[in-house]
Simulated scan of single mutants.
Amino acid sequence: MSFRMPTNFGRSGAQEGALDLLGHEILAEKAAALGRAGQRVEETLAKLREGGDGEHRNRLLKEAAAAVHGYFIQRELCGLRKHDAVIREYDIPRAVLARLGAS
């Protein structure tokens, strides 16, 4: 599907303004999605730190790894490629990073 501006925008300034509004909406949604993903990381890591044994811990690790993976993807979609500071800030355990393939 292609996107075409309405024909009633006769001036290029109006077209640019409409595109700026669309770009602003897209950036706002990216930021909101990044915030929601970060909140999910915080929640899953808090549950993991509360603890658990055996199978329960494995489930918590899996949930935390999925949340961190989603957060990393959302960051990359926003143009943020380096995750070192985030790993330190959230204090993401090595066990979670290992599930993502980090060494």
Results as ranks from 00 to 15, higher is better:
R40Q: 14
E63H: 10
I26K: 02
E25I: 11
N58Y: 06
E16N: 12
R57L: 07
A65G: 06
R57H: 03
L45I: 01
S12W: 09
Q39F: 12
R94Y: 05
E16R: 11
H69Q: 15
A64S: 15
K47V: 00
P6N: 07
D53A: 14
A64C: 10
R49F: 06
H83M: 13
L21V: 14
E50C: 02
H69S: 15
A31W: 01
A46T: 09
L61V: 06
A95L: 08
V41E: 00
A64W: 04
M5Y: 10
A28H: 12
H56T: 09
H56P: 00
V68N: 05
Q39Y: 10
R49S: 13
L48D: 04
K62V: 04
Q15E: 13
A95P: 01
Y71E: 02
A85M: 05
A98D: 10
H24M: 12
H24C: 05
R4S: 08
Q74A: 05
I73V: 15
S12Q: 12
D84K: 15
G70E: 06
A66P: 00
L19T: 05
A98I: 03
H83T: 14
I73R: 15
E63I: 01
G17Y: 06
V41Y: 02
S103F: 08
P93V: 13
K30A: 11
L22M: 12
A37S: 09
L100S: 11
V41M: 03
A66L: 12
L34G: 04
F72W: 03
V68E: 01
Q15N: 08
A28I: 02
L48S: 03
A33T: 10
E63A: 05
A37F: 01
A98P: 00
K47S: 08
H56R: 09
N8W: 15
V96D: 07
A31R: 07
E29N: 11
I87N: 01
L48M: 08
N58S: 09
L80C: 06
G10V: 02
D53R: 14
N58F: 07
V96Y: 01
G13R: 07
E50Y: 03
E89N: 12
R57I: 00
R75G: 06
G13E: 14
F9W: 14
D91A: 11
L27C: 06
Q15I: 13
R4P: 00
G38R: 01
